[in-house]
């Protein structure tokens, strides 16, 4: 099996896996980074969202072979001390219910704010629409993204 050198959370990590292994399972099973979640495996729920060169992507449908030298950020690497504006807003607004979807929600929101630091409500909703929260915490997810935008310096 080929060895892949991946740039994950600022570190180069090597994995020896089949080319079609989704990045999600590389993270979870091979790199001990289980913060990225498995919800559907077909790109529908957003639980597995990570950053690929700063853009939010679904890691469950991204083969490891296509990662190449892109900078990958997972929830574990979003901030050093859990103090990314989005993470802080998630606590302040008290978003989580079961919490399972939230890593994916946070990664989607963080990518949105990177590109669009002051999003409109509509932009927030468009960006977050792909992430399912089975507990239905959508009101606070929306509120927290807007709250994080207030904290984000453009």
């Amino acid at each position: 099996m080929p060895v892949y050198k991946l740039n994950i959370n600022g570190k180069i990590r090597s994995v020896d896996v089949a080319a079609d292994t989704p990045l999600l399972w590389v993270l979870r099973d091979h790199l001990q980074l289980p913060g990225t979640k498995f919800g559907c495996g077909i790109g529908q729920c957003g639980a597995c969202t990570i950053h690929y060169d700063g853009v939010a992507v679904r890691s469950c449908v991204m083969p490891v072979s296509s990662v190449r030298d892109a900078k990958i950020t997972t929830i574990e690497g979003l901030s050093e001390n859990g103090d990314h504006p989005v993470q802080l807003a998630w606590d302040e607004v008290d978003v989580a219910q079961c919490g399972y979807c939230q890593a994916g929600q946070i990664m989607t929101a963080a990518a949105l704010l990177k590109k669009t630091p002051k999003p409109t409500l509509e932009q927030v909703e468009n960006a977050m629409h792909g992430n399912i929260c089975r507990c239905g915490a959508y009101h606070r997810i929306r509120e927290a993204v807007l709250e994080a935008a207030k904290k984000t310096k453009p």
Partner: peptide
């Protein structure tokens, strides 16, 4: 009162 496990959840701790 905020969820006592907010930080674990928001930082992707292996709690599940």
């Amino acid at each position: 009162i905020r969820n006592i496990k907010n930080k674990d959840i928001a930082t992707g701790k292996p709690i599940f």
